[in-house]
Design a protein around this nucleic acid. Structure first.
Lengths: 139, 139
DNA sequence: ATCCTAACTTGGACTTTGTCTAAGTCAACA
DNA sequence: TGTTGACTTAGACAAAGTCCAAGTTAGGAT
């Protein structure tokens, strides 16, 4: 993702240490962190970084399409750095763990015109739910 | 949904005026209300009902499978009284309006075994996104 | 009909998640 | 190496939801 910083500079971004650190944190993690988790990891590298800056930077990355915002429950949003390869999510109903998955076929194919009610449908998000291997055998 | 109250009594619920009012509000609305919207409508019929009771009752209805909790964005959860007929949601990216839709086929069919990572997958929620007729022509 | 009691409700304090603002700082260009 | 507007900061604020101790009540027992 180090070319992420290049792409951002190409779009006129000022390349601050704070933005660099947020990008590094997202790059290093293959799980989907909440904003507070991103902040906690960012603070380890840049102790004075503020929550507001982390929120701002994440919001900007989402607007630019570099990061996906995932809201699988009513809790904190999670940020998914793997925005360039289309994928869906598999969530453990018990512990909340999230995996990226790649289903076959076009998810829009299942929605006939008669079920679109005049909407211009542009995409679909699928959240598969189940129990992860660790939660299958017991509570 | 008046038999909802019967079902609940069959499960040992105390039938209070507050619970009755919350059930009536959900019954009367075919849109998906937030907890605060449910509270606002409940107050019209029972002015002293508290927010805590509305949250409690909605949570209990969700646990019993009588109502679905829908979290389409990072904002407030919405409550869907149409829990007994399986369906998915079509959300307007602009104004947030939600419609129930009924896609064809089994949503789990698109997820091959190799993409399940040992999870016991039990269901899938699909959120179709697009612009509703009112938002298609401009903001 | 009345009593009793566990279950329910209440208001308010509290938590979590996120947004906003005014003042200070600094990256990048000239 | 100056300048300047974009960026960052701390903290106040807001929205959504949870928790708790104290008060109330539905519904079975009497």
């Amino acid at each position: 993702m180090s070319d992420l910083l290049e792409r951002l500079r190409g779009r006129g971004w000022r390349l601050t240490s704070q933005r660099r650190v947020v990008a590094e944190v997202l790059d290093g993690e293959h799980v989907h962190l909440t904003a507070d988790e991103v902040h906690a990891r960012a603070v380890e590298r840049l102790p004075e970084i503020s929550r507001a800056t982390v929120y701002n930077t994440l919001g900007e990355l989402v607007c630019l399409g570099e990061v996906l915002e995932v809201a699988t429950d009513g809790r904190a949003k999670r940020y998914d750095p793997n925005a360039h390869r289309p994928h869906q999510h598999l969530v453990c109903s018990d512990c909340g763990a999230i995996r990226d998955v790649h289903p076959q076929g076009d998810p829009l194919a299942g929605l006939p015109h008669s079920e679109r009610f005049g909407f211009t449908v542009s995409g679909a998000e699928i959240t598969y739910r189940g129990l992860c291997p660790g939660c299958t055998t017991g509570p």
